[in-house]
Design a protein around this nucleic acid. Structure first.
Lengths: 203, 203
DNA sequence: ATTTGCCTACCAAACGTTAGGTAAAATGGC
DNA sequence: GCCATTTTACCTAACGTTTGGTAGGCAAAT
């Protein structure tokens, strides 16, 4: 979550919670843990938030909306499949790096969402994944991508980008733009149509 | 875990626990949950196992050893980097599919391991990842792989194979061998050296 | 005077686990 | 095969601790 000069207590709670949820897991993080990080008592958190579940729900749906909105933008601005895929990966990587903690929570802790949020979340996630499938399918139609199983390709793409929260460091030697370019190169290189004149190519 | 005709109670506990840990998470799964699945009382579990943590530790280290052993075999049997990488992916995929529940626990629940198991686990995991890096590096030396950042490539490879537990179904339309071949094709296709005669290639 | 944001005290429920007991199964001697 | 003894695998009851959360109070800020 983006840093501002002064943030209110609720926002502090969300940020600390996201960090602790990422590192320990939602279930293993107590309200007393969160409060201690903020230098207050657990009961005081309830002045600002309704419940522990409210925190998790907010983090997960905030991230879901970011990813969905970014992908919509990609589809609105770009037209050919390779560009869309590159940009989709780039946006996804950028958001993941900008919101590392919340992304980790989004990816790993949704199982603890209460119903009906859980079902709703799964729908959003499935819809997001389907968009990647459509892009791959369009690439095949445009004769630029191999005839891969587009569900498989989409899952592979998403799985490779969804691990960044485990190793990315803002002060590391790769920035989000470089990461997304390298990732896109590998993935797109892997699903792009090959010519038989390529002596390294084995069908 | 492989199915045998009759398994003892301890093995039943491990299997049920792995399934529940995968679906609900370790922390959110109580001993009463596990016992209920087996039709007994939670206190009865302690006749067969020492503690909840013992279950998690056993699952995680059992899987770690499987992956490590398989990779060692790959390195002993195969010699060129592409073959090693293909086989490493194949073994990894096969094990993941054979032990879906335990793999998910291995990948997602290690954070709850007690010390010193946690530190030991991280070492094993880092060592396993380093082996993938060596394979990629060797491929560059053999002039078959692009000059990619081998840490990045290894992480990308592992991230793409480590999502299978989320969507693989034994009765689906792809078996582990097909999955590993497709995955290896995409990944290796993505990191393989390209010729400038390839008209689709943009440096 | 009212609002805000914290505190302390407390609650009911849930947790992993221990201890003692008992019935059924297994074992070994005859 | 029978029987006494031992072992096994469960049960109930209970423990100490932790959890998410409520309620009332108070001091500082508005």
């Amino acid at each position: 979550m983006a840093e501002t000069l002064t943030i209110n207590r609720k926002e502090q709670i969300m940020q600390v919670a996201a960090r602790l949820f990422k590192n320990k897991g939602y279930e293993a993080t107590s309200m007393r843990d969160i409060a201690a990080e903020l230098g207050i008592e657990a009961a005081s958190l309830y002045h600002h938030i309704k419940s522990k579940e409210e925190i998790l729900t907010a983090i997960c749906f905030d991230m879901a909306n970011r990813f969905v909105t970014a992908l919509k933008e990609v589809n609105d601005i770009y037209f050919n499949a390779e560009e869309r895929l590159r940009m989709a990966i780039q946006y996804h990587v950028q958001i993941s790096c900008d919101y590392l903690d919340a992304t980790a929570v989004f990816l790993n802790e949704w199982r603890s969402l209460p119903e009906p949020s859980l079902s709703e979340f799964k729908k959003m996630r499935d819809s997001y994944e389907k968009q990647f499938r459509i892009i791959v399918k369009d690439g095949e139609t445009e004769d630029i991508f191999d005839n891969v199983d587009e569900k498989f390709a989409a899952l592979t793409i998403l799985s490779s980008v969804n691990w960044i929260h485990q190793w990315y460091k803002a002060d590391g030697n790769m920035n989000p733009s470089q990461i997304s370019k390298k990732l896109a190169d590998i993935i797109i290189g892997g699903i792009r149509k090959k010519l038989i004149t390529d002596p390294h190519y084995k069908p």
